[in-house]
């Protein structure tokens, strides 16, 4: 498949993510949109990795082929860790304000 399709899909996912973050006030949805953007990037990384593996320069040094895919795993691990922290924050937020609306959270003290 042509690389353009992957790029288009990733861009679309990314834009959906951005618009979601910008427009929604529910922190859980914002969180999900951030995950969406992460995955758009992951998708791109995998797609480009595959594309590069076909090129001649890389074939002389096969270890490079898997670099981007290892990178994706890292991102997924970090994202998982982040989800656990993020969700914990949201739970605390809900306990304090009885809401998950981010606009309630406009001051750090009190």
């Amino acid at each position: 498949m042509e690389i353009q399709w992957y790029i288009g899909l990733a861009a679309a996912l990314f834009c959906i993510g951005i618009v979601g973050v910008l427009t929604r006030r529910n922190s859980i949805i914002i969180f999900m949109c951030i995950e969406l953007m992460f995955n758009a990037v992951n998708l791109l990384l995998v797609a480009f990795s595959k594309m590069h593996a076909a090129s001649a320069a890389v074939q002389s040094n096969p270890s490079v082929v898997s670099d981007a895919q290892i990178f994706v795993f890292f991102i997924m691990v970090v994202a998982a860790a982040e989800v656990s922290v993020g969700l914990a924050i949201i739970v605390m937020l809900y306990r304090n304000t009885h809401s998950v609306d981010v606009n309630f959270l406009n001051r750090l003290k009190n």
Binding site: V21, L22, N106
Partner: peptide, 13 residues
């Protein structure tokens, strides 16, 4: 620095 997270994100974008 209004404290509105949405505003910060918008500015970032």
């Amino acid at each position: 620095q209004s404290g509105q997270v949405g505003l910060y994100v918008l500015m970032m974008v």
